[in-house]
């Protein structure tokens, strides 16, 4: 997707990003993060930690108060409207509130992301059917979106996010309304996309989906990155206990110290 023409390996690059909402709510504070092409990254943290804001900044919906957000080498604060539109066609976003069109059918909702990219009708039809089959909702093809359960709506939103074969997928709590079986289906879909080279950022609370040895996890709290976990083979940092409550306490300590240095965690849950 490198529309700038350089062969940069970094897909997402956030440099000292702060996002403040009026009157003075700091959703993100001095966050720096790099996500390489083809990487699968989990953003974790408690509600209100800033995960959704981070995803919104990356998709260009929000603008940072301070700092820079670059996606595929393009600085989103300097990008033209037309280029942002092109860039968004290469980013698949699964929103926490799904953003489905209630009066349209499941197939029509999924087709939206492909239609704006002027995909052929044949491609749209095939891709829609494939995705519905993968997510076990083929029978809902012609069902109106507002007639679906929350779990089904979530799967449709995910199908729409991946339908246009984007280079970057941003998923906000993609398994929040799903049972274990559906969660597995969704994660299989994400892993298949990731194996084909797609960069994926997943914001989630669900530890069952990120507790894999090969996952890179970034934990946010109070708008700061408080922990990162690299791939298991690269992780040589001091392990700390891995859990939201401990993270929150650590976050407060960090805030007391007024530092944004990340703490390193290990997946087995032992605190150093």
């Amino acid at each position: 997707m490198d529309t700038t023409g350089n062969n940069n390996q970094v897909m997402v690059d956030l440099t000292r990003v702060t996002r403040t909402f009026p009157p003075d709510v700091q959703a993100l504070v001095d966050v720096s993060l790099q996500v390489n092409r083809g990487e699968l990254l989990f953003l974790t943290g408690m509600s209100g930690a800033g995960k959704t804001t981070l995803l919104r900044l990356i998709s260009g919906i929000e603008k940072p108060t301070k700092g820079y957000v670059e996606v595929s080498g393009m600085d989103l604060s300097k990008i033209s409207r037309a280029r942002l539109q092109k860039l968004r066609r290469l980013i698949g976003v699964a929103y926490q509130d799904f953003k489905l069109l209630p009066e349209r059918t499941v197939a029509q909702n999924i087709a939206v992301s492909m239609e704006v990219a002027y995909r052929s009708r044949l491609f749209i039809r095939k891709q829609t059917r494939d995705l519905l089959a993968q997510l076990h909702i083929v029978d809902k093809h012609n069902t109106r979106a507002d007639k679906l359960s929350r779990g089904e709506q979530q799967r449709v939103a995910l199908a729409r996010a991946v339908a246009n074969k984007p280079d970057l997928i941003l998923a906000d709590e993609p398994t929040g309304n799903l049972d274990a079986e559906s969660t597995e289906l969704v994660m299989d879909l994400f892993h298949r996309c990731n194996e084909s080279g797609t960069t994926i950022l997943i914001a989630t609370h669900d530890s069952s989906i990120y507790n894999r040895p090969d996952s890179r996890i970034v934990t946010l709290d109070c708008g700061r990155i408080v922990a990162t976990k690299q791939d298991a083979d690269k992780d040589t940092s001091e392990p700390v206990q891995y859990g939201p409550e401990t993270l929150f306490t650590d976050c407060l300590k960090l805030l007391d110290k007024d530092t944004s240095e990340p703490v390193q965690y290990e997946p087995d849950g032992e605190e150093s």
């Binding site: 409207r81 037309a82 860039l87 704006v116």
Partner: peptide, 16 residues
């Protein structure tokens, strides 16, 4: 409005 917002989010061009 909802539909237009979604179209913007998925990268629909102004002419689209």
């Amino acid at each position: 409005q909802k539909e237009l917002e979604l179209l913007h989010l998925v990268g629909a061009s102004n002419s689209y």
